[in-house]
């Protein structure tokens, strides 16, 4: 297997010492088939054990290793070194505060995720004796692609509206709300609409489409948000123009 020297510029920030982040240059021997995360692991193992970053699964499932690689939000376990020429610039995910080195503060996203209630809320209580909730394949396919989200936050790092208006609920949270709203077993849509059909919810989105371009799981958040706009618009006219349906 071929090895080559790879140059990386990694943004470093130590809150106890640094006033602001700075780039540190590393040169690390890498195997041809490695990804950026492997290069970071090699640095931490044999060059600089103080480097901090998050990772877990190394297979694009856990969603922890998102970072800016040459200015693009990517999962570092999914960014093959052979796809890059020259120095690779690695920074923490954009639009999130830097905790340390490549580790960001994800609290804002986690809070927003909680607010949209991304779990099944049954419409009516149902005794266990009534059996399982049945769902046809067609009902499953309606939302399945939106359920592939791994909460990696790349879409937040790509979304300029989230950067300009930090109160914006953002792509992944609204997409997950939509995923449960589309689920035939769910009855919680109105509760979620109270959160997402707001100015700081879906209406802050201007359909830049960047979220869908960077999503590593092809979830297409931009599509979900447009569908939420269409559905919320139909709601509005129903609630305001049809007699006796005000909520």
């Amino acid at each position: 297997m071929n090895e080559r020297m790879v140059q990386l510029e990694v943004l470093r920030y130590d809150p106890q010492v640094d006033d602001e982040p700075h780039f540190q240059h590393y040169e690390v021997p890498c195997k041809e088939e490695w990804v950026v995360l492997d290069a970071l692991n090699a640095i931490k193992e044999s060059i600089d054990p103080t480097l901090n970053y998050r990772w877990s699964c190394h297979m694009a499932v856990c969603g922890s290793c998102g970072m800016m690689i040459n200015g693009e939000p990517r999962l570092s376990c999914h960014a093959f070194l052979r796809g890059f020429a020259g120095v690779i610039r690695v920074e923490p995910l954009a639009h999130f505060p830097i905790e340390r080195d490549l580790v960001t503060v994800a609290d804002d996203f986690i809070d927003k995720l909680k607010r949209v209630k991304p779990y099944l809320i049954p419409g009516e209580p149902r005794p266990i004796g009534a059996g399982e909730y049945l769902q046809t394949p067609a009902q499953l396919m309606k939302y399945r692609h939106f359920s592939m989200c791994i909460n990696c936050m790349l879409c937040y790092a790509a979304c300029p509206q989230y950067a300009l208006q930090p109160l914006f609920l953002g792509p992944a949270a609204i997409t997950l709300a939509h995923r449960y709203n589309l689920d035939s077993r769910d009855g919680g849509r109105e509760q979620r609409q109270q959160v997402i059909a707001t100015d700081e919810g879906v209406w802050e989105c201007s359909f830049v489409g960047a979220c869908s371009e960077v999503c590593p799981k092809a979830v297409d958040p931009a599509a979900a948000l447009q569908q939420v706009k269409v559905a919320s618009t139909l709601d509005w006219f129903r609630e305001h123009l049809l007699p006796g349906s005000a909520t």
């Binding site: 609409q193 959160v195 707001t198 709601d235 509005w236 006219f237």
Partner: peptide, 15 residues
Amino acid sequence: MAKSNKPVVWSLFAA
């Protein structure tokens, strides 16, 4: 936060 009234202008925008 209340539901938005932007659907009014957004529907005109979309149409």
